[in-house]
């Protein structure tokens, strides 16, 4: 299944909850303020780095670029554009948004 997170993990627990609940092999897509968690040096990125072996982690490129963070994406995180976002949604049976 696909999990979508859109809140900064330094402000909300959405990503943390998601990582606790998601099952091995799940896809996690970070959008909007959640993309900060996928950048090098962010305090939350340690959690995410540990999770990379269990999940496929994606971050929305336009949101990274808008925030000036496009050049410091954590290794192992794939970036997708809006088309890739749609592909992820259609490739998975269901989807939970961690609002």
């Amino acid at each position: 299944m696909l999990h979508i997170v859109n809140k900064s993990s330094l402000e909300r627990n959405a990503l943390e909850s998601c990582l606790h609940v998601a099952q091995d092999g799940a896809a996690i897509l970070l959008i909007e303020d959640a993309v900060y968690a996928a950048t090098r040096g962010n305090a939350a990125s340690n959690h995410l780095r540990d999770a990379l072996s269990r999940f496929k982690v994606y971050a929305l490129a336009p949101d990274l670029e808008a925030r000036g963070m496009g050049d410091r994406v954590l290794e192992g995180v794939s970036t997708v554009d809006y088309g890739g976002f749609v592909d992820l949604v259609t490739e998975h049976k269901n989807c939970q948004s961690w609002l």
Binding site: M1, S17, H20, V21, A22, Q23, A26, K93, N94, C95, Q96, S97, W98, L99
Partner: peptide
């Protein structure tokens, strides 16, 4: 919560609030 995650995987539709 890990069990809830399993249950969530089995759903056809998940509505998030």
């Amino acid at each position: 919560r890990a069990e809830l995650g399993k249950l969530m995987d089995e759903m056809d539709v998940v509505l998030s609030f």
